[in-house]
Every structure is written in C-alpha cells, then in structure tokens.
Design a protein around this nucleic acid. Structure first.
Lengths: 146, 146
DNA sequence: CTGCTTTGGTTGTCATGTCAACCACAGTAC
DNA sequence: GTACTGTGGTTGACATGACAACCAAAGCAG
C-alpha cells in the first residue's frame, strides 16, 4: 500500500509547525545581541553556567542541560573563549571545568533583563494560559522517544 | 522599574518553546536523508520547484515561496547544482531560471512518500486535534508583526 | 541623453551545527 | 597483567544560515 502524499491541510500543519519558533527566536536573539553583543546560544550557555553551576560546570553536565552534543559545545566554547566570555580549567585529567569570566558575568547580567522583557513581549504575553499549557505539553510529548 | 528576571516557571515555558521543533525536524530530516540522500532544505527546494513551477522557476520567486533571502538561496542552489539536483538557465539577462534535473525529479519522487509517512508518524499521529489546532493558531499568531 | 533607484543575483566572510574520527583515561573482564 | 568498553573531550571537514558588499540590467526623473 503506497503512502498517500500529505494533503494540503496536513501540509499546512507541517509548515506551521516548522516555522513556529523562527520569528520569536529571531526577535529575542536580536534584542539580546543589540544590547550586549551576545548571541542566543552564548546567552544560553552563560545562563546555565550561572544558574546551575554557580559560574562553574563540567562540560558534559553543561552539554546535557542544554541538550547539545559534546562536539557542538566544544566548538561553541572555543568561540566563546576567544570572546573571553568563559575559560576552561582542567579539574583532573579528563574532566574540564567551564568557568564564567568577569566579562561573561557582566554581559550575562546586562542581558538578563533584556531577555526576560523580550521573552515576555514576544511570547508569553501573546499567548493564553491554555495555549501555553498546550505548548509545554506538546513539547514534552514530542521530545520523547518514539 | 527594573525588569524582573524570568521565573523558573517562565523559563521552563521558554525552553519548551525553543526546543519544540528540534527533535521532530531532525527525525523527519533523517528519514528523508537515509532513503534518498536529500537534506531537509534540498527537499524543500525540490518540492516547491515541482509543485509551484512545474519543475522550473525564477530564483526570486522560489526564494519568496520558501521564505529565504536571495543570498541563502543562491548559496544553496550552488551546492544543489554540484549534486546535480538542479540546473540554472539564463532566461534573459538578469533573470535566472532554476530547473529540476532528471536526478532531482527522481529523488524528489522517491522522497515524497517517505516525507509524508515521517511527518505523520513523528508529528500528526502524536497530537490530538485540539493540540494541532492550537499549534496552527499559535504559529500564525506569533508570525504576525508585533 | 544623464543620473538615480530598484530589481535579480553573486560573492566573501563569519557564526552556527552535524558527523565521524580520534585521543586519553577509567573501569571491568579475563 | 592484557584486552575490551565506556566516558569526557578535541578536532577537521563540511552543510547551513545571516549579513553586507558588490555588480549588471531596467525603469524612471530631469
């Protein structure tokens, strides 16, 4: 039995789903970048470091909390190191600690209120509680293995 | 009045929203790639070409239908040309026609049912009608200008 | 006609992501 | 001990994407 092509209706759903996050992410990212020069991913890394590790975390733990693979994080930390947002320090052999620098901390502090305001303006305030609840439920649902 | 940082609850919503599409897009992309070697963006370009232009479109029209800027499309077409999925043909001076090749058409035909099945398995069949309706509504809502 | 703006496209550069190969150490099996 | 396996991380190559500078043709104002 051949698979039927997607109906126009199905295609519209697929397309809506695909592009849903794009505009919001772009707007929030732009707000952060304009005010502090941090990119979205930079801000994500710095917040985790500060909130979960008090400014200092093992690379692997950081990667897991971001949902990134180790290679992606390694590359990104190299770029962030060049911008002096983080340092790497060897704990023992094998384990590397990622550490917030002064400059990283300062930019994070500057970016936080901008981020919060932007997320509220571009996302939270535009959705009903019902819609937000559905988003969270669907996100968790689809993140699970099949 | 300083902006309050996001509450943990708000942060969870933001994070759920940010990652919502990632797994699904990745799975569908992987299914297409495994069966035909096409990437997600490749498939998008080929489908538009076939559906909207009957295998032949002006670059600018193609870019608009994809929501891409001209530079992005130009770069991507160069890569697709190298894989012999499309050709470029000058219409008059200035205007370039993008044309499906035999190979592009064949791979598109092979990918279509895989794509349809994967979208249904990874997205449509996992959500209730209520949830789907909310997704579409939210996607349209957030795509609008502020 | 000359000059200005718009349109259609290319190109270079850089940030971001993915994938596979690799290395070093640690733990466990034997 | 040696071999196998798992964990933590780096690296290189390449695809993707954003942005700005550039170029040539077309349209239009004067």
């Amino acid at each position: 039995m051949p698979t039927e092509p997607l109906t126009p209706q199905e295609f519209r759903i697929w397309h809506a789903f695909k592009v849903m996050g794009d505009d919001v992410l772009e707007r929030v990212g732009r707000d952060i970048a304009l005010s502090t020069g941090l990119s979205g991913p930079d801000f994500g890394v710095l917040s985790r470091l500060a909130d979960l590790g008090n400014g200092e975390m093992r690379q692997q733990a950081l990667a897991e909390s971001l949902g990134w693979d180790k290679s992606r994080l390694s590359h990104h930390l190299t770029r962030m190191q060049k911008k002096r947002l983080v340092k790497r320090r060897e704990a023992d052999q094998r384990v590397v600690l990622v550490v917030l620098t002064e400059e990283g901390r300062a930019k994070l502090d500057a970016a936080r209120p901008v981020h919060a305001e932007s997320v509220r303006r571009n996302l939270l305030s535009r959705l009903s509680n019902q819609q937000i609840e559905t988003i969270v439920r669907v996100s968790n649902l689809l993140g699970e293995e099949v």
